[in-house]
Amino acid sequence: MSEGIRVAAVEDVEPGEALVLPQELTGTEQPISLFRDDDGTYYALDDTCSHEDASLAEGWVEAGEVECPLHATRFCLSTGEPMCLPATRPVATHRLEVRDGDVYLYPGTPHTA
C-alpha cells in the first residue's frame, strides 16, 4: 500500500472535528477516525476507546488530544496514549499523508512524529 488510500479532501474535516472512515474503505477490522486538530494537523486513530465501547470521533478535539465522550479519557492524537484515567491502554495510530488537497491513509502503519 505504498500509495496510501485516499480517505478525504482536506476541507472534509474542519479543525477540531473528526470523521469516521468506512471500514470498507480502510480494509480494517476496527473503525478508524480521521481527526483534524485545532491547529489544522491531521491524525488517524482507531475510533474505539480502549476503556469502553465509545466512538472517539464523537469526542472533543483540542490541543493535540481527543477526549472520549463517555468517561473523559483524553488520548494523544500523535501517539494514541491515554493522558488520564480511566483508560490505561493506548489506541492505535495510523500514518497519514496530505498531498494535492487530499488526505491519504496508510492503515496499520503507525503515525511517526
Rank of each mutant, 00 (worst) to 15 (best):
V61M: 07
T26K: 09
T79Q: 05
A9M: 11
R36K: 15
L34C: 03
A18D: 10
A44C: 11
H111C: 09
F75I: 06
H111L: 06
G64H: 03
R36V: 05
G16I: 07
V7K: 13
P82L: 06
S33K: 01
G27S: 08
V20Q: 13
A44D: 00
R74I: 01
D102L: 00
P90S: 15
A113G: 12
V13H: 04
A54V: 10
I5M: 09
R95Y: 02
A63S: 13
E52S: 14
V13A: 06
P31A: 14
T109A: 13
A18C: 11
S78C: 14
D39T: 13
A92H: 15
P107M: 08
P22C: 02
A63P: 00
L21S: 03
A18R: 01
A8L: 04
D53V: 07
A9G: 15
Y43M: 06
M83P: 00
T112I: 08
S50F: 03
G80I: 00
Y43F: 15
H71C: 13
W60V: 06
E62D: 02
L19S: 01
V10F: 02
A63W: 06
V103G: 08
S78Q: 11
S2C: 04
E52Y: 13
A87W: 03
E11T: 07
C68P: 09
M83G: 08
S33P: 07
Q30L: 13
P110L: 08
V61R: 03
G80L: 01
I5Y: 03
V7H: 05
A63K: 12
A72N: 12
D37W: 02
H111Q: 13
V66R: 07
I32L: 09
L96D: 13
V20F: 00
E62V: 11
P86G: 08
L85A: 14
F35E: 03
L34M: 07
D47Q: 04
P22K: 12
L56D: 00
W60N: 07
V13P: 08
V7S: 08
V103D: 12
Y42F: 15
H94R: 02
A113R: 07
T41N: 05
T73Y: 11
C76R: 14
C84D: 14
E29K: 05
P22H: 12
C68I: 04
L45W: 11
S55A: 12
E97D: 12
S50A: 15
T28Q: 15
R36G: 05
Y43K: 04
A44K: 02
S33Q: 05
E65Q: 13
E3Q: 12
S2A: 10
H51R: 04
D46K: 02
L105P: 09
C49L: 06
M83K: 13
I5Q: 12
G40K: 13
P82S: 08
A87R: 05
Q30C: 01
T28I: 08
